[in-house]
């Protein structure tokens, strides 16, 4: 079973990366990269590291790809994008969204399942230790990242906010 899942996921991952490199349309490239990231997240899940899996999906497929897509959208895509491909893209996008939702739901179920007696399992302890580490040994870097986020918000407001009110 594990082997089958592994084979499927790695095949999807490799195929998505190949498609990403071969495809001409920047938006398609970005979406294929999301597929690759999602498959990678599944592989992490297979390796019994739920945190890495969730982080992979949330951080890469979620946050970083949104950034990529924004950057791609800033360019003028109408020239590159034939109208007939629109349906394909829509299908691809919704399939992707469903995949992400399924992964997140799976992760959520597993995490909420841990709240019971399973809380003592090894992986849960790892997560708890990670959290504790963040608020003890790594408190200073954590606080600085809060400052970093504030800098990003203030900077984004300064560059893109309303001009009169700022």
């Amino acid at each position: 079973m594990t082997l089958a899942v592994f084979v499927v996921l790695s095949a999807v991952c490799v195929a998505a990366v190949a498609a990403m490199i071969l495809s001409r349309n920047p938006a398609d490239n970005a979406l294929f990269l999301v597929v690759a990231f999602a498959a990678l997240g599944g592989l992490f899940g297979l390796l019994d590291s739920p945190f890495a899996a969730v982080a992979q999906v949330l951080v890469y497929a979620g946050a970083i790809m949104v950034l990529f897509l924004f950057a791609v959208m800033m360019f003028d895509l109408r020239r590159l994008e034939p109208r007939s491909r629109k349906r394909v893209r829509l299908g691809l996008a919704s399939a992707l969204a469903a995949l992400l939702l399924a992964e997140l739901a799976l992760a959520g179920i597993r995490i909420s399942g841990l709240a019971g007696p399973a809380w003592r399992s090894a992986e849960a302890r790892d997560m708890a230790r990670l959290g504790r580490l963040l608020f003890t040994d790594y408190l200073y870097p954590l606080e600085i990242s809060a400052l970093l986020l504030m800098a990003a918000i203030a900077g984004a407001l300064a560059l893109a906010g309303r001009k009169d009110a700022g």
Partner: peptide
Amino acid sequence: LVVFLGLEVLSVASYALTGLRR
């Protein structure tokens, strides 16, 4: 780690400062 985060705080603020003359 701290040096890197400090550098990023500096950089993010600098990017915005550079573009202030909108």
